[in-house]
């Protein structure tokens, strides 16, 4: 096959594949906590909020990671500040702050003249990954997976029951901002692969797919990582073969998997649910006839 041949022979394809698979994995892992904490919209917000940071970093000639983390975390704090100090609800506060950050980012990038940069940041271009960016993604991946491994117990309990966690002395606020920082790092790592606009899909869709398949958090983490990686490989294939934007093909692949599980999941799927519903109805009617 053309795709396999390309992966085996072209360095840029190998880098693209490795980077995309790593991004799929870390997005899947962190995404589980994002959806279980009801922070899907927050994921969207942070991913948009890194844009001004990236732009400022370009202007100052520093690593864009630094600026991205700063504006990402600042936006997270700003969202909390507005919703805690007014009657504005959390989701509204998110809407206000992230669109603001994103708008500032667009203004900064247009001022910098180059619009191709903007296009790549927004939509991703995994086939143009440089070696330094691949290593960078790998480092972020190690940090993220390491933190999740080390703090798994604390993340589990504070996600499930924040009040009990606080009652026994767990610093829940620290854990929240740790997660926000990890989320920002994952978002930055995903810029090249799926782009800012579609990062949220990689955070949410594989995790939601896994959520429909298991009742155990650790299984959900593994499944979600697996779906993220499969989406990356599948998406890269369609991107290469049909010359499409990689971010879009990865997200579509991921969503197709979601709908397959949505219909066919043994416990939560629509198909089994309707079968069980019908069986129950027939059982009840059968009993009524026998009486």
């Amino acid at each position: 096959m053309e795709f396999i041949h390309a992966v085996l022979n072209y360095g840029f394809m190998q880098k693209a594949l490795i980077t995309a698979v790593m991004v799929g994995m870390i997005c899947g892992v962190i995404g589980c906590f994002i959806i279980l904490r009801g922070m899907a919209l927050m994921g969207d917000a942070i991913s948009h909020a890194v844009l001004p940071g990236v732009a400022i970093s370009y202007m100052l000639g520093i690593n864009f990671f630094i600026g991205a983390v700063i504006t990402g975390v600042l936006t997270a704090i700003g969202i909390g500040f507005v919703s805690q100090n007014s009657r504005i609800k959390h989701d509204v506060s998110i809407g206000i702050m992230f669109t603001f950050a994103f708008a500032i980012g667009i203004i900064l990038i247009t001022m910098m003249k180059s619009s191709t940069d903007l296009y790549h940041i927004l939509f991703g271009n995994v086939l143009a990954v440089r070696p330094s960016e691949m290593w960078f993604t790998l480092i972020i991946g190690v940090i993220v997976v390491g933190c999740i491994y080390l703090f798994y117990k604390e993340l589990l309990i504070s996600t499930f029951d924040a009040t009990m966690s606080a009652a026994y002395g767990l610093p829940v606020r620290f854990i929240h901002y740790l997660l926000m920082t990890l989320l920002t790092m994952v978002t930055v790592a995903s810029l090249q692969t799926v782009g800012i606009i579609l990062v949220v899909a990689m955070l949410i869709t594989p995790a939601a797919t896994a959520y429909l398949l298991t009742d155990r958090l650790w299984v959900m983490l593994y499944l979600s990582a697996l779906f993220g990686m499969l989406a990356a490989v599948g998406g890269l294939y369609f991107s290469y073969v049909y010359n499409l934007a990689s971010g879009a093909t990865i997200v579509v692949t991921s969503t197709v998997m979601f709908f397959l599980v949505f219909v066919f999941s043994p416990k939560q799927g629509m198909l089994m649910k309707s079968i069980r519903k019908r069986q129950q109805r027939e059982r009840v009617r059968g009993q009524a006839l026998n009486q």
């Binding site: 279980l36 009801g38 589990l156 996600t159 499930f160 029951d161 009040t163 009990m164 009652a167 026994y168 959520y211 298991t214 009742d215 155990r216 958090l217 299984v219 959900m220």
Partner: peptide, 16 residues
């Protein structure tokens, strides 16, 4: 200190 929260504070769909 053991704390048992109100039932409404728990997400009963949590994978646990």
């Amino acid at each position: 200190i053991a704390y048992v929260p109100q039932r409404s504070e728990i997400d009963w769909n949590f994978p646990i």
